[in-house]
Design a binder for these strands. Sequence first.
DNA 1: AGCAATTAAATTGTGCGCAATCTATATAAG
DNA 2: CTTATATAGATTGCGCACAATTTAATTGCT
Lengths: 158, 158
Amino acid sequence: MSSCTNKPTLDAEEALLLKNQICFPLYSAANAVIRAYRPLLEALELTYLQYLVMLLLWEKDGVSVKDLGQQLHLDSGTLTPLLKRLEAKQYLTRGRSETDERIRVLNLTTEGKKLRERALTVPGAMACKVTLDTNELIQLRNLCEKIIDRLEGDDHPG
Amino acid sequence: MSSCTNKPTLDAEEALLLKNQICFPLYSAANAVIRAYRPLLEALELTYLQYLVMLLLWEKDGVSVKDLGQQLHLDSGTLTPLLKRLEAKQYLTRGRSETDERIRVLNLTTEGKKLRERALTVPGAMACKVTLDTNELIQLRNLCEKIIDRLEGDDHPG
DNA sequence: AGCAATTAAATTGTGCGCAATCTATATAAG
DNA sequence: CTTATATAGATTGCGCACAATTTAATTGCT
């Protein structure tokens, strides 16, 4: 019953032009960012998503797959194989919770903990590549989080 | 020789917290957007990227793989298999240029042209899901394009 | 205790993204 | 004309994302 009453800025014809696609720059920027991280993370043998997982483990060791999924907005279909790769690299172990055998408990290895030192330069190097000022970064974050909020909860009403 | 003289807002330790990752919301928002497009594009049997390619062809029929790649910031490794899928769906043909046999010429089929009618409602439906106002959309686009500009040309100096 | 419903994670299959490499055509230089 | 170089696209291989399904453990209900 919730029909959208948003007044469109463009007519339907104009709206189909690539230059008027709201989300295309978002999509391209995200790709560009991941590409830009690649050389920085190469030395750590991490992909961008693996790096995000390591960030979370460095903050809080011993989390579950579900914990990771909620924080990263990803499911086990993405995370399970990724975690196996991080396990194969000896950065973490994939144990089981003692109180609930269903739950994987992800723990950093010594190697995984040591990796953090070498990651300390990554955020700075990335900031240098992007060179947005603090205001722009905050704006961008707010806009992106607004989008995520609107799209993630299909359920709650307007 | 171009060392970055950007003054960091955070120290190296804080910079490794997920909540301080500039680009994580960008990455998550892009994922969320593609996910949100999925049900809208299902009826057209298109993925988000296939939809972008169709948008370009509806604007200008007969382009090459290189043309597409430059506009979408993607290479033949991504586009070739995608274009084969669109060809299999009978939305386009993958011919060759008469003057240069290396070049693929992508042409819409009748079916592909007809699809445009059914796509006319997609931008509006998406705008309803995202519900950012015009100012926010412009801000977002500008910020994303800034990022793309900074990251895409590794070559030109500051 | 016994059984249905729920939950956590794994699995399967499709489609990107992209680096690296390869093939074929076209152009340039000698 | 011939060899070198450049260009357009295809191929290969890996790692996401994610829908859909499956497996196994736990919880709730009676």
